[in-house]
Computed example of a mutant assay.
Amino acid sequence: MTLAAKAPRRHEALVQLYGTRRIDFEAPDSSITFLARDLKAPAPHAQPGLSAVRRRPRPAPRSPPLVRHHARGPAPYGP
Rank of each mutant, 00 (worst) to 15 (best):
P61V: 12
H45M: 04
S51Y: 03
A71F: 03
Y18F: 15
P74M: 05
Q47K: 15
P76D: 03
P48V: 03
A43C: 09
E26K: 09
L66M: 09
R68W: 07
L17P: 01
Y77R: 05
E26I: 06
D24T: 10
P8G: 03
V53Y: 09
R10M: 09
I32Y: 03
R21F: 03
V67L: 15
R21Y: 14
A52D: 11
K6P: 05
T20G: 05
T33H: 08
T20A: 07
H69P: 04
L50S: 06
K6C: 01
A46Q: 02
L35F: 13
A5Y: 00
P65M: 13
P57T: 08
A5K: 00
A4M: 12
F25S: 06
I32G: 06
A71G: 13
A60G: 06
A41D: 06
V67N: 09
R22F: 07
F25H: 00
I32K: 05
F34Q: 08
P57D: 07
Q16K: 13
R21G: 02
R22D: 10
S30I: 07
H70A: 14
S51C: 14
A7Y: 03
M1L: 10
R37S: 15
D38Q: 13
G73K: 02
G19W: 02
H69F: 11
F25R: 06
A75I: 00
F34G: 02
R56I: 03
D29C: 08
P42I: 03
A4I: 10
R68C: 10
P42D: 00
H70K: 11
P57A: 12
L14Y: 05
P74R: 08
R72I: 02
A5P: 01
P28R: 12
